[in-house]
């Protein structure tokens, strides 16, 4: 029951973050929302594992916590690079 409650909260959060990601006036808003969405997915997967009675797969959450960083850094580098290319040429 408590896991279900937490999941409901996480799903609401995801919906709101999704709205921002789709709306986001600037790219940075989208990055921010996507980032937050990533964290909430970690929580969702962890909590869903408990809900279905197989909690020993937090490895998945661990992957996101680690690898998502690489994705975010790539996005930020892309943003900067575009800027530099525009200035250079």
């Amino acid at each position: 029951m408590m896991f279900a409650t937490a999941i409901v909260g996480i799903l609401i959060t995801m919906a709101l973050a999704l709205a921002r990601a789709l709306k986001g006036p600037t790219v940075f808003d989208r990055i921010l929302a996507a980032n937050m969405f990533g964290t909430k997915t970690i929580l969702l997967i962890a909590a869903a594992g408990f809900l279905t009675g197989r909690p020993d797969w937090t490895d998945l959450a661990l992957v996101y916590a680690l690898v998502n960083f690489a994705g975010t850094v790539a996005v930020l580098k892309y943003v900067r690079f575009q800027d530099m290319a525009a200035g250079g040429e």
């Binding site: 789709l22 986001g24 990533g38 994705g71 996005v75």
Partner: peptide, 10 residues
Amino acid sequence: LFAAAMVFGV
């Protein structure tokens, strides 16, 4: 397309 890539990540 950049925004699409972000949404694709989601």
